[in-house]
């Protein structure tokens, strides 16, 4: 049998600091070097699926809304397929990027994504995940980017058998991962970094 291969250590993380927007969304800060900010548009007129918007804020342990955060999302298309060369299960909707990036509103800190509701995705053992969107949050004071998932509150049956949601020990915390629909396709998803109602973050 082959000997154990020496594995390199991952490059250690450092905080994104207060000026992440200069590097990742420079147009948002008024620095016109690129034509547009990457990730500012996920859909076009031909994207398949149910149009939704997601808004929310990132809140610290003192209850203050962060205004220096950057939030990225990644999701499957309406059929549950990712627009990525790593996707092995099919070809995604070419009119849907699946990736969004938001610096949040400069005054309110509110992030917003205009996207579509994703389809269900299978886990490695073949069980279906409920529709979900992967979130990644960085900011000053966050030493390693935080992963979490947004699920859809109205997907009661799918959520009840989701391989992740069902294995969470503190079931009373599951609602921190559920976005609420206002009935018109607009979802609210706040991310609480610490304290009461702290969002469940993932070590994936």
């Amino acid at each position: 049998m082959a000997q154990k291969i020496k594995r390199l250590n991952e490059t250690p993380s450092q905080t994104a600091g207060p000026y992440v927007h200069i590097g990742c969304t420079p147009s948002f800060t008024g620095i016109d070097v690129y034509n547009n900010d990457l990730g500012d548009s996920m859909v076009n007129a031909n994207t398949l699926g149910e149009r939704i918007s997601i808004t929310g804020t990132v809140v610290d342990g003192a209850g203050m809304v962060l205004r220096d955060t950057m939030v990225e999302i990644w999701q499957a298309d309406a059929a549950g397929v990712h627009n990525s060369p790593q996707e092995t299960r099919g070809v995604a909707d070419p009119n849907f990027t699946g990736w969004g990036r938001s610096s949040g509103n400069a005054e309110t800190g509110q992030f917003r994504f205009d996207t579509i509701k994703p389809g269900r995705v299978a886990s490695r053992d073949g069980r279906l995940f409920a529709p979900h969107i992967t979130f990644w949050i960085v900011a000053r004071g966050i030493n390693l980017g935080l992963h979490t998932r947004m699920y859809f509150a109205e997907e009661v049956e799918a959520n009840a058998v989701d391989p992740i949601l069902t294995r969470i020990e503190h079931q009373n915390r599951v609602p921190t991962l559920l976005a609420q629909n206002d009935g018109k396709g607009s979802y609210r998803f706040d991310i609480i970094l610490q304290g009461d109602n702290e969002t469940i973050f993932f070590d994936i």
Partner: peptide, 14 residues
């Protein structure tokens, strides 16, 4: 700044 921006709970590993 990390004091109020650090989750208290252990992250969920999978």
């Amino acid at each position: 700044t990390s004091i109020t921006r650090s989750p208290n709970f252990a992250p969920l590993s999978f």
